[in-house]
């Protein structure tokens, strides 16, 4: 004979204990007495229907809470998150710049991998720098055909910003500004061109 557990006593007095298990109360005086006492205590507690304030109280209370809440700052959705941070147009531009920068860095890196080895020279002349820039621009034009880039794109196609946010990936505040400041004149011009193009395209 196994006595009721605490949870089973609760289920018994609330009428939720399976009948086959509840039969134990018929056989065990000890459990039955305790269940009756618990049930009586519960009934006595529930006989107190509580306190109902005046009907006028509720309007007064709601007004009081409303007043108190209006003294509080409006709660931001996620003040520390990238979404709230991006609400500032300056931050949005900086973030856009950082994304563009990342793309340029990735493209330049790939250009370095695929480009023929430069002639051995320790001196960087304006000509060689121009050649390197031309080489990079060729790769930029070709990025859509790049299979490695296509793999990356396919992998992230189903990933939403919310997924990224939930995964805890967010730019560190200030990082986009730093990246934007590090863009050179050409990169800034390219970013501006991309943004202008998109604004014209959407007609906004």
């Amino acid at each position: 004979m196994r006595h009721f557990s605490e949870a089973e006593f609760v289920d018994l007095i609330e009428g939720r204990l399976p009948a086959i298990r509840a039969e134990h109360a018929d056989e065990c005086d000890e459990c039955r007495a305790l269940a009756d006492a618990l049930g009586a205590a519960r009934s006595r507690a529930s006989a107190d229907e509580g306190h109902e304030p005046s009907p006028l109280f509720w309007d007064h209370f709601a007004a009081r809470v409303g007043q108190a809440v209006r003294e509080e700052p409006v709660p931001a959705s996620e003040p520390s998150s990238w979404r709230a941070w991006l609400r500032d147009p300056a931050s949005a531009w900086a973030a856009a710049a950082s994304v563009a920068m990342l793309m340029l860095v990735a493209v330049a890196w790939r250009a370095t991998l695929h480009a023929p080895a430069p002639p051995t020279s320790s001196v960087s002349t304006p000509d060689t720098r121009e050649a390197a820039r031309n080489s990079a621009s060729v790769v930029i034009d070709d990025v859509e055909a790049d299979t490695a880039w296509a793999v990356v794109r396919t992998a992230v196609e189903g990933v939403t910003w919310e997924d990224v946010h939930r995964a805890g990936i967010a730019p560190r505040p200030g990082s986009a500004e730093r990246v934007a400041l590090e863009l050179n004149a050409d990169e800034r011009a390219e970013l501006r061109r991309l943004l202008d193009e998109e604004i014209k395209r959407t007609g906004a």
């Binding site: 979404r83 793309m103 196609e157 939403t160 910003w161």
Partner: peptide, 20 residues
């Protein structure tokens, strides 16, 4: 903000408007 994101996102990416 949406335009900026759309502008820098590579073609084929979905630019999702934030929950807020």
């Amino acid at each position: 903000l949406d335009r900026a994101w759309a502008a820098v996102a590579a073609p084929g990416w979905d630019v999702h408007v934030s929950g807020e």
